[in-house]
Amino acid sequence: MKNPFKNTRLFMMVALLLSVGMLSSCDSDSDDEVLLGEWQKQSDFAGVARSGAVNFVIDGKAYVGTGHDGSRRLSDFWMFDPAMNNWVRKADFPGAARSAAVGFTANGKGYIGTGYDGTDYLKDFYEYDPAANTWTQIEDFPATARYGAISMSFDNAGYIGAGFDGNYQKDFWKYDPASATWSEQIGLIGAKRVNGFTFMVNGKGYVGGGQNNNVYQTDLLEFDPATGQWKELKTLAEEQRPDKVFPGPRSYATTFTIHNNAYLVGGTNGAPLNDVWKFDPATDTWTKLGDFKGGMRQAAIGFGVGEFGYIGLGNSGAQRFDDLWQLNPTVANE
Rank of each mutant, 00 (worst) to 15 (best):
K2R: 15
N3R: 04
F5G: 08
K6N: 14
T8K: 15
T8Y: 14
R9L: 14
R9A: 15
M12P: 05
L16Q: 10
L17G: 09
L18P: 07
V20Y: 07
G21Y: 05
L23E: 11
S24L: 15
S24N: 15
C26W: 15
D27N: 15
S28Y: 10
S28C: 13
G37S: 03
G37P: 00
G37E: 02
W39E: 06
Q40D: 13
S43I: 13
F45T: 03
G47K: 10
G47E: 01
V48D: 02
S51D: 14
G52K: 03
F56D: 02
Y63R: 02
Y63S: 01
G65D: 01
G67A: 04
D69W: 03
G70Q: 05
F77A: 08
D81S: 11
N86W: 13
W87D: 02
W87F: 09
K90D: 05
A91R: 12
D92V: 06
D92F: 13
F93N: 08
A97K: 14
G103R: 04
A106R: 04
K109G: 05
K109I: 04
Y111W: 01
K123C: 06
D124I: 00
E127D: 11
N133I: 11
N133V: 10
T136W: 00
D140Q: 11
A145R: 06
Y147Q: 12
I160M: 12
A162R: 08
N167D: 11
F172M: 03
W173L: 06
W173A: 08
S179I: 03
S179H: 00
T181M: 04
W182S: 04
I189Q: 14
I189V: 15
A191S: 14
K192E: 14
N195Q: 09
G196A: 10
F197T: 12
G203V: 02
K204L: 04
Y216P: 09
D219A: 03
L220C: 10
E222K: 15
G228C: 01
K231H: 06
T235I: 15
G248D: 13
T254W: 00
T257Q: 01
G267Q: 08
G270R: 06
D275L: 12
K278Y: 02
G290F: 00
A300W: 08
G302Y: 02
G302A: 05
G309K: 10
I311H: 06
I311Y: 08
L313I: 12
Q319R: 09
L324M: 07
W325A: 14
W325D: 11
T330Y: 13
N333C: 09
